[in-house]
Design a protein around this nucleic acid. Structure first.
Length: 456
RNA sequence: GGCCCGGUGGGAGAGUGGCUAUCCAGCGGUCUGCAAAACCGUUUACGCCGGUUCAAUUCCGGCCCGGGCCUCCA
């Protein structure tokens, strides 16, 4: 039994898919105008764990994550650099794919692009106009919020509060201050598509409604995204879709990941603490970045720090060490232990699941019976796999891409072993110090000497 | 101003109406030529003030502090 915290209910609820044979999930993806930053990676990693968990429990899972490739920020970037929009979105999308793969995220089942679904969006807007929920005004098409009685239910707001708190000037063509744009006009230089309301481009929210409908159906199981999207983006998606679908719900479970801070401060370009995944991958392996993200529960705010990342790397050292310790045990199929599965199934409690992973590692380090070693090895890999961790070869984790250097290291270790055998410990220690200078730590265990790279 | 979320031991971070996770660091051991790693043991908690209760870190109320959102930032 899986349980998730549903923002719509503000409570944990048992997960019951509409169709137990086919679970459907939608997660808001990136606007492709710049490299993904570490905050962008959080929902990707969190919902990747959810995807893996669902795939383990249900025969079929369709996971859609969109690419927003039409947006004013992209237009601004093109204007600033002179690079064509298509070049920016292509390049940024490719980088996004590479970076997310590097942190261990599986590709979603479908990755719909907004520009490939303009027709679906126009049709949905037309339906909203025909049903009377939307109106054209001054080249725009707007959704008339007061006509949707449940507006504000997801975010826990009411319309009066929102108007009272509004900081932004209300456009004169709006019938109601809360109305939002479905379609807006484009100038001849701006990207645009022909529509019944003239040449224009879609508002931000409509793409998710249209692409969700197209790929997942009228009502699907899970909709995910960052907490900051609850209002207005998801609220607006709900309004559009429900009104276009005669009252049918959009998604049954709404999951939102918490915000990310950097060294205690909000991440922003002006503060100079803006961290891209790409930069991070220069000095740290993707698996450690991924684990650092999963050490905090997904709904909690996370403070992204160098110390936290180092802790994650150290934890992987421990886990891979345990795996290496039982490395010679035969492979056998296994399920993750019940306590691990229960932790993950309880609203994706990854910190609790990691506790169970540590328990398995401790067990593996102590195990002597071949049957225990086989079981612990298999369980460690099965549990790690659900988190998208420990899929690598332990030797590769410790030694990295050693190449030619490995032979030289092995040679020095052999010399040291020989020195130790003739009890020339000062020579042995000299070699150990030399290796340490080169960033290599050695460990004498069970009559064999192994080595690993240490942080330089 | 409105709405929402959070404040747990030296650090990270779960969780629970009583039996006080886990990891890192520290301290003491075992092992080792010495280390390292591993293993064993161990010290330090639940923002403040009230209330409910036999019992509250956990429930309720108030306060303080931090963070987020308020029309296109994951």
């Amino acid at each position: 039994m899986l349980r998730f915290y549903n923002t719509l209910a503000r409570a944990k609820q048992p997960f019951e898919p509409l169709d137990p044979l086919h679970v459907r999930m939608y997660v808001c993806g990136p606007t492709v105008y710049d490299f993904a930053h570490i905050g962008n990676a959080r929902p990707v990693i969190v919902f990747d764990v959810l995807y893996r968990l669902l795939k383990a429990r249900y025969p079929r899972v369709t996971y859609a994550r969109n690419i927003t490739d039409v947006d004013d920020k992209i237009m601004d970037a093109a204007k600033a650099s002179g690079e064509p929009i298509e070049a920016i979105t292509k390049r940024t999308t490719d980088a996004y794919h590479a970076d997310m793969a590097a942190v261990g995220a599986l590709a979603p089942t479908i990755e719909p692009r907004a520009t490939a679904h303009i027709a679906e969006m126009v049709r949905m807007i037309e339906r909203l106009v025909v049903k009377g929920f939307a109106y054209a005004a001054d080249g725009h098409v707007l959704f008339n919020v007061p006509l949707f009685k449940d507006y504000g239910r997801l975010s826990g707001r009411n319309r009066d509060e929102m108007i009272a708190g509004a900081r932004v000037e209300v456009a004169p063509y709006k019938r109601d201050p809360a109305d939002f744009v479905l379609w807006k006009p484009s100038t001849s230089e701006q990207p645009g598509w022909d529509s019944p309301w003239g040449r224009g481009r879609p508002g931000w929210h409509i793409e998710c409604s249209a692409m969700g409908e197209r790929h997942l159906g009228i009502t699907f199981d899970i909709h995910g995204g960052g907490q900051d999207l609850v209002f207005p983006h998801h609220e607006n998606e709900i309004a559009q879709s429900i009104c276009a679908h005669d009252g049918a719900p959009l998604a049954r479970y709404w999951l939102h990941n918490g915000w990310l801070m950097v060294e205690g401060e909000k991440m922003s370009k002006s503060l100079g603490n803006f961290i891209t995944v790409r930069d991070l991958l220069q000095k740290e392996r993707g698996e450690a970045i991924r684990l650092a993200m999963l050490m905090t529960h997904y709904r909690q705010p996370i403070d992204w720090t160098a110390a936290g990342l180092a802790h994650a790397r150290q934890t992987l050292d421990r886990l891979y060490h345990a795996l290496r310790h039982v490395g010679d045990a035969d492979d056998e199929p296994a399920q993750p232990p019940a306590a691990f599965a229960a932790a993950l199934g309880d609203d994706l409690n990854t910190p609790q699941a990691l506790t169970e992973l540590h328990a398995l590692a401790g067990g593996a380090n102590k195990a002597t019976e071949p049957a225990d070693r086989r079981r612990l090895k298999a369980e460690l890999k099965a549990a790690g796999g659900l988190l998208g961790l420990l899929g690598g070869d332990p030797e590769a984790w410790f030694k990295g891409e050693a190449g030619d250097e490995a032979a030289a290291i092995e040679q020095l270790i052999a010399e040291r072993t020989a020195a130790r055998q003739r009890r020339d410990f000062s020579a042995a220690d000299r070699i150990r110090d030399e290796l340490k200078r080169r960033g290599i730590a050695i460990e004498d265990a069970a009559g064999r000497t192994t080595w690993r790279r240490i942080a330089s």
